[in-house]
């Protein structure tokens, strides 16, 4: 929701980045204020996922220009774990499997690490168990999730729910959901979206990276951005998503080029 005079959480200016020598982001601008939900859409290869990984600090990408400020801090100077502790959360498109590491053990370590950073008390295993089970209800997850290894043998839907569970636990300031809707059937999508909606509040912000308008039926964005060739070329309200659904992406690029020529 757009709140009047809410403060800026994330400010990206002219962000350029490479992966193994190829330029993927070419001057990306984005401002996200607390309370807002943003959707970043765009065709395959437009740089959406790259952008989300760069915000999280993945070492495969080299930032070559621009700035990223998060709550007044230079985000690019922070190590990935410091960004997470500061409140940047990325729900992965393909959450990796970690065989042998118990989910409950992993969730407790991550929860306690972030809590400690915020100067709050850690939870012991029993207290944590109560806490996490409560959060799991939000996502209609069965308790046997806790007994399994992290993401190992999880279905696509289970992996995505596990991501949103972590978002619920860690209570981030900025949550980036990278194609969270992909691989979800309609019931799972509803459950995940419902979870995200309950987590959205006036102090945090959510950036949804997605291909399809479908997710936006459930999580209604305040802004929809269209990315192409490493830049945001159009921004609109939620109705833009419907237009994209019916017309595709091509017209946005054409329109953008026309505007660029007119202003040149």
């Amino acid at each position: 929701m757009i709140y009047k005079d809410s403060k800026i959480l994330l400010e990206v200016r002219g962000l350029c980045a490479n992966v193994s020598g190829t330029e993927i982001l070419k001057g990306l601008d984005l401002t996200v204020r607390s309370g807002e939900i943003h959707a970043i859409m765009g065709p395959n290869g437009s740089g959406k996922s790259t952008f989300s990984k760069i915000l999280a600090g993945h070492s495969a990408y080299e930032v070559t220009g621009g700035t990223v400020m998060f709550e007044g801090q230079n985000l690019l100077e922070l190590a990935p774990e410091e960004r997470a502790r500061a409140g940047v959360f990325l729900a992965f498109q393909y959450p990796i499997e970690i065989p042998g590491v118990g989910n409950s053990q992993f969730l407790r370590l991550t929860y306690n690490t972030v809590q400690t950073h915020r100067g709050k008390e850690e939870l012991d295993p029993l207290e944590f168990d109560d806490y996490v089970r409560e959060k799991m209800k939000l996502l209609e997850m069965s308790p046997d999730f806790l007994e399994r290894s992290v993401n190992e043998g999880f279905s696509g839907g289970e992996k995505k729910r596990n991501e949103i569970l972590q978002m619920a636990m860690l209570d981030p300031r900025l949550a980036i959901l990278d194609e969270t809707d992909s691989g979800l059937d309609i019931d799972a999508l509803r459950i995940v979206a419902n979870g995200v909606n309950q987590l959205a509040n006036k102090d945090n912000a959510i950036v949804l990276v997605t291909h399809y308008q479908r997710l936006l039926n459930y999580i209604v964005p305040d802004y929809v951005h269209v990315m192409e060739a490493g830049r945001i070329i159009k921004t609109g309200g939620k109705e833009l998503a419907f237009e994209l659904e019916s017309r595709g992406y091509d017209w946005v690029g054409v329109e953008h080029k026309a505007t660029a020529r007119a202003t040149a």
Binding site: R83, A84, L90, F92, I96, G100, Q105, T113
Partner: peptide
């Protein structure tokens, strides 16, 4: 795997230790 841990606030040292102990 290490990036996944890092994105949840866990540094490489603790991550490796957890993976190895799980193994």
């Amino acid at each position: 795997q290490l990036f996944y841990f890092a994105q949840r606030g866990i540094n490489a040292e603790a991550a490796v230790s957890m993976i190895i102990n799980g193994f």
